[in-house]
Amino acid sequence: MLEVDGTKPIYIQIADWIETEIIEGNLAADEKVYSQYQLAELFNINPATAGKGLTLLLEAEIVYQRRGLGTFVSPDGREKLLNKRKNETLRKLIIELLDEAELLGVSNHHLLSMIEAERVRKEGGTK
């Protein structure tokens, strides 16, 4: 898929939103997902566009369909998503990080220690 820095097409945003709902646990395994009409109403968009968002998730087997009953979260949907985010989103961010570090002449060792320092600070802040 196209890598976008700017605004994403709505159907992708819809898919993203449902994914986040699954990751955050708002939608559990085998729980019914919003229908395209509910999504259309919720986001004020055309139901066909909402349907495209659901189709993306169906193709990735994050959700499955039961004839006449609707769309449900796959038992391993959340796991798949977590892997996907690790492999795609996180990897993308790391590549960007490495590019930026290279541009600034920051060594690998220095970069790792910066990450560690940031983690300590964050954990300290939440305590």
Binding site: L2, E3, V4, D5, G6, T7, K8, P9, D99
Partner: peptide, 11 residues
């Protein structure tokens, strides 16, 4: 992207 070009979708 390596050359500093930002890519975005089009409205």
């Amino acid at each position: 992207k390596l050359d500093g070009i930002a890519i975005a979708s089009v409205s």
